[in-house]
C-alpha cells in the first residue's frame, strides 16, 4: 500500500522515533534519522524534477 500520509516523528531519550505511515515503528539514532531524512528528500526531489520535465 502506498502511503499518502506522513509519519509522526518524536524524540525519546536521545533517539528519534518514527511512527507511521502504516505499520512503521522505527527507532533511529539522530545521525541515522538525519541521513534517512536527506535521502527521502532527495528521492522526492528527483520525482518532482522528473514530473516537471
Amino acid at each position: 500500500m502506498v502511503q499518502t500520509v506522513a509519519g509522526e516523528v518524536s524524540i525519546e531519550v536521545g533517539q528519534v522515533l518514527l511512527d507511521g505511515p502504516g505499520g512503521i515503528a522505527v527507532t533511529m539514532t539522530p545521525a541515522a534519522a538525519a541521513e534517512t531524512g536527506r535521502r527521502l528528500l532527495a528521492a522526492a526531489d528527483r520525482i518532482a524534477t522528473q514530473s516537471a520535465g
Binding site: E12, V13, Q15, T27
Partner: peptide, 10 residues
C-alpha cells in the same frame, strides 16, 4: 512486537 525498548517505553 518488533520495537526497541525505547519505543516500548514511550
Amino acid at each position: 512486537c518488533g520495537l526497541t525498548g525505547v519505543h516500548v517505553n514511550r
